[in-house]
Simulated assay, not measured.
Amino acid sequence: MLARIYQPSKTAMSSGTAKTKHWVLEFAPRTAREIDPLMGWTSSSDTQTQVQLTFDTLDAAKAYAKEHGITVVQFAPNKRKPNIRPRGYAENFAVDRKGAWTH
């Protein structure tokens, strides 16, 4: 069995980093997807592709895979530097602003 271990990235709809701290073990598909001739829907008989296991640490995910004889491919996360302003959002409404109000 082949699986991949990765740390999910943040969603495009959110600026927060919720649900990006854990690690996910996801199984690779064994068979290709098939197109249903009648309806045109895509289907597969492989149910392992529906399984996603989450772990708090990378070591826990690797230990689980080793214990169950799963061959894994690990993907390193692409971390972004946080964009933190010194005074944050409240800086827009500060009474001691140096520049002119532009809004």
Score class of each variant (00 low, 15 high):
95 V>I: 06
77 P>H: 06
54 T>C: 09
41 W>M: 11
27 F>H: 03
103 H>Q: 04
50 Q>I: 07
5 I>L: 00
35 I>H: 09
96 D>E: 03
23 W>C: 07
88 G>P: 00
91 E>N: 01
1 M>W: 10
41 W>L: 11
2 L>T: 04
30 R>C: 15
38 L>I: 15
23 W>R: 02
73 V>M: 12
30 R>M: 14
86 P>K: 02
16 G>N: 14
51 V>C: 09
92 N>K: 01
86 P>L: 03
19 K>W: 10
17 T>Q: 08
33 R>K: 07
81 K>N: 09
81 K>A: 11
15 S>D: 11
93 F>K: 01
79 K>P: 12
32 A>M: 10
70 I>M: 06
72 V>E: 08
17 T>A: 08
47 T>V: 13
13 M>Y: 11
10 K>C: 08
3 A>R: 00
9 S>H: 11
46 D>N: 06
63 A>D: 12
24 V>H: 08
63 A>K: 14
69 G>W: 08
79 K>E: 15
101 W>D: 04
30 R>K: 15
100 A>M: 05
86 P>S: 07
8 P>L: 00
97 R>P: 07
34 E>V: 14
63 A>Q: 13
36 D>P: 08
1 M>K: 09
39 M>T: 15
102 T>S: 06
25 L>G: 06
59 D>A: 12
2 L>H: 08
35 I>G: 03
66 K>Y: 02
79 K>A: 15
96 D>G: 00
55 F>A: 05
75 F>I: 09
52 Q>I: 10
7 Q>R: 14
82 P>R: 13
66 K>M: 06
26 E>P: 12
80 R>A: 15
31 T>P: 06
93 F>N: 05
10 K>N: 10
